Simulated scan of single mutants.
Amino acid sequence: MTSADGDIGDARRAATAFGSRACPDADLGALALVVSELVTNAARHTSGWWRLTVRGEGRRLDVEVEDRSSAVPAARTPRLDGRGGHGLNIVSALAGPLEVLPGPHGKTVRARWVAARQAHEPLPGPEPHGASPLIGQEP
C-alpha cells in the first residue's frame, strides 16, 4: 500500500487484516500501533510519500515503511506537551530494534518480530472446573 492508496488509518486496517490471515498468533493491536507510528513518521518527517509492506510467515511479522528521505530516524526523548517523541520508542518497545535500509531513492524502516499469542485467546487444553483460561496468565 502507498500513500496514494490511502491514509494512515487505511494502512493500519490493511496491515491488521493481513496479519490476522498470515500470522494468526499476531498481536494485532501491536501490529496496528507499529504500522501507525512508522507511517505517521514517514508522512510527517519526509516528503509525505510512503509505501507500506507487511509480510507474515508462520509466527514472524515484518513491517516495512519506505519513503524518499535518506535521513535515519532517531528516537527522541518523549515530550509531555503532546508534540511527539513517542513513536520510535513505542515501536522499539513492541517490536525491538528497527532496521534502516538505505535505498537508491530514500530508505526503508523495518520492524521485525516473532508474534506471540494474544492474551485474550483461549489457551489450548481443558479448563479445570470451568476456570477462565486467563487466570494466572500475564496480560
Rank of each mutant, 00 (worst) to 15 (best):
residue 135 I to N: 06
residue 100 V to H: 10
residue 116 A to I: 00
residue 73 P to V: 11
residue 71 A to Y: 04
residue 110 R to G: 05
residue 36 S to G: 12
residue 49 W to K: 07
residue 61 L to W: 07
residue 35 V to S: 04
residue 132 S to C: 13
residue 82 G to N: 10
residue 33 L to G: 02
residue 109 V to H: 02
residue 56 G to A: 11
residue 48 G to Y: 10
residue 40 T to S: 15
residue 139 P to G: 00
residue 30 A to M: 06
residue 137 Q to R: 14
residue 84 G to V: 05
residue 96 G to T: 08
residue 30 A to V: 00
residue 76 R to L: 14
residue 22 A to H: 13
residue 134 L to G: 03
residue 137 Q to M: 02
residue 56 G to C: 10
residue 33 L to S: 12
residue 102 P to Q: 15
residue 91 V to F: 08
residue 87 G to N: 15
residue 110 R to E: 03
residue 23 C to A: 15
residue 134 L to M: 02
residue 76 R to S: 14
residue 81 D to L: 05
residue 107 K to S: 09
residue 121 E to D: 11
residue 98 L to A: 08
residue 48 G to M: 08
residue 77 T to C: 14
residue 113 W to I: 00
residue 78 P to M: 13
residue 61 L to N: 00
residue 9 G to K: 03
residue 105 H to A: 14
residue 64 E to I: 04
residue 98 L to K: 05
residue 69 S to H: 05
residue 126 P to C: 00
residue 60 R to Q: 13
residue 79 R to S: 14
residue 137 Q to L: 09
residue 133 P to E: 02
residue 128 P to H: 01
residue 128 P to Y: 01
residue 43 A to G: 09
residue 127 E to P: 03
residue 119 A to Q: 03
residue 139 P to T: 06
residue 103 G to R: 15
residue 89 N to H: 06
residue 16 T to V: 15
residue 24 P to W: 01
residue 112 R to Q: 11
residue 90 I to P: 12
residue 47 S to V: 00
residue 86 H to Y: 14
